[in-house]
C-alpha cells in the first residue's frame, strides 16, 4: 500500500500547529486571570511574559517590604486574583499603591531583561549608543537601559485588562502610569572618563536602572500624598471619561501624572472584612517598645497581644583553621515575640 504525500499531509496538518513550540500557546490560555489581550501578548511573546511575571513578583515583594510595619501588609484576600489585578482591594489608597508598584515592577523587569539580552527584539537603547553626542558634549556608549521598550510593553500588557469604562478602571490606569513614571524618573546615568587628565571632559555615559528599592521608596512617598478623585461623567453616555480631584481649590482639576489617586477611603484594616479586602491584624507580629505603626498598640488596634518566650541559638565566634575546617561556639539568648490577639 502506498501513501501519497498529499494524503499524509492532510492527515497531519492538524497536528502540525502544535509542533511549533511546546505549550506556550496552551499555557497562555490556561493562566487564570488574564484578559484576552494579555493572552494574545503571552502567546506571541512567551519570553516577555516571563519577565512580566518576574516584574509582578518584584513589585509585590517591594510592596510587602514598604508596608511591613503597617496594618495592611500588602496582602490580598483572594490569592487567585493576585496575578496582576487586585480588584478585591476596592478603590483605596492601598490599591493605588499596589497597582503602581506592579506596573513599575513589570516595566523594570522588562527593561532589565532587555539589557541582559534575554528578550528578543530589544537590547540596549539604540538612541543612546554608537557614539552619539549628548547636548552636554559627552558621548553615549556602553549599554543604556532600553527604558522606552520596557515602558511600552508594560503599558501594553498592564493596561490591557482595564477595559471596563468605569471609575475604578480609570483609577487603575492612572496608577499604572504613575508607576511607570516612577521608573522613568528614577533612571540614573553612569559615566566613564577617558584619558588621564583629571578634567573628565571626554566621557562615555549610559543610562542605568536604579535599585528597585529607590522606586519603592519614591512610590511610598507618593502613597502618603495620594489624592482622592471622583469620576467626571461624560454628558451623553454617562460613563466615566476622566478623573478629577475631589478636593481642589479650583473645580475640574485633573490629578498630576505622578500622583497616586484613589476613589474610596481605606478601612482601618483592624478586622477581617471581605468587602473591603481587609485581612485584619490578628496574628501579626508587633513591637512592644515603639509608638510607631508597628507598635503593638497601633498594630493590634487595642485588642492586646500575646507574648511568646523562646530561646534562640546560633553559631558564634567562628574561627577558621588552616586547612580547612571551621570551629564555632554555640550562643543562645532568651527572646520574646509578640503577636496581636
Amino acid at each position: 500500500m502506498t501513501v501519497s504525500p498529499t494524503v499524509v499531509w492532510a492527515a497531519f496538518s492538524m497536528a502540525l500547529s502544535s509542533v511549533v513550540a511546546l505549550g506556550a500557546n496552551i499555557i497562555c490560555n490556561k493562566i487564570p486571570g488574564m484578559a484576552p489581550k494579555q493572552r494574545a501578548i503571552c502567546r506571541s511573546r512567551p519570553d516577555a511574559i516571563v519577565s512580566i511575571g518576574e516584574g509582578a513578583k518584584l513589585g509585590l515583594t517591594e510592596c510587602q517590604y514598604q508596608f511591613r510595619f503597617m496594618r495592611w501588609n500588602c496582602s490580598t484576600l483572594d490569592s487567585n486574583d493576585s496575578m496582576f489585578g487586585y480588584e478585591s482591594l476596592g478603590g483605596t489608597k492601598e490599591a493605588a499603591f499596589i497597582y503602581a508598584m506592579t506596573s513599575a515592577g513589570v516595566s523594570y523587569a522588562i527593561t532589565q531583561s532587555c539589557g541582559l539580552g534575554s528578550l528578543p527584539n530589544c537590547g540596549c537603547d539604540k538612541d543612546k549608543g554608537d557614539g552619539k553626542l549628548a547636548p552636554q558634549g559627552w558621548k553615549w556608549g556602553g549599554c543604556s537601559a532600553d527604558i522606552k521598550h520596557g515602558l511600552r510593553l508594560a503599558r501594553k500588557f498592564m493596561d490591557a485588562r482595564e477595559i471596563a469604562q468605569n471609575a475604578r478602571s480609570l483609577m487603575n490606569l492612572h496608577n499604572n502610569r504613575a508607576g511607570r513614571k516612577a521608573v522613568k524618573d528614577n533612571m540614573g546615568t553612569d559615566c566613564k572618563c577617558h584619558g588621564v587628565s583629571g578634567s573628565c571632559t571626554m566621557k562615555t555615559c549610559w543610562t542605568t536602572l536604579p535599585p528597585f528599592r529607590k522606586i519603592g521608596d519614591s512610590l511610598k512617598k507618593r502613597y502618603k500624598k495620594s489624592k482622592i478623585v471622583v469620576p467626571y461623567l461624560g454628558r451623553r453616555a454617562r460613563t466615566a471619561v476622566t478623573l478629577i480631584l475631589k478636593r481642589a481649590k479650583r473645580p475640574h482639576r485633573k490629578p498630576r501624572r505622578s500622583h497616586l489617586v484613589y476613589l474610596d477611603k481605606s478601612p482601618n484594616y483592624c478586622d477581617f472584612d471581605g468587602k473591603t479586602g481587609s485581612l485584619g491584624t490578628v496574628g501579626r507580629k508587633c513591637n512592644r517598645t515603639t509608638k510607631d505603626t508597628d507598635g503593638c498598640d497601633l498594630m493590634c488596634c487595642g485588642r492586646g497581644y500575646n507574648t511568646h518566650q523562646y530561646t534562640r541559638t546560633w553559631q558564634c565566634n567562628c574561627k577558621f583553621h588552616w586547612c580547612c575546617y571551621v570551629n564555632c561556639n554555640k550562643c543562645s539568648e532568651r527572646t520574646e515575640e509578640y503577636t496581636c490577639k
Binding site: 493562566i31 487564570p32 511575571g53 509582578a56 539580552g117
Partner: peptide
C-alpha cells in the same frame, strides 16, 4: 496547579531555549 508566570516552573516552560533562538543578541 494552575499556571502562574511568577513561578519558575512555568517561566521555564514559556522560555525559548537560548540555543533555538537565532536572532538574539546572545
Amino acid at each position: 496547579g494552575q499556571p502562574d508566570v511568577r513561578l519558575p516552573l512555568w517561566q521555564c516552560f514559556l522560555k525559548t531555549p537560548a540555543a533555538k533562538r537565532n536572532e538574539t543578541p546572545l
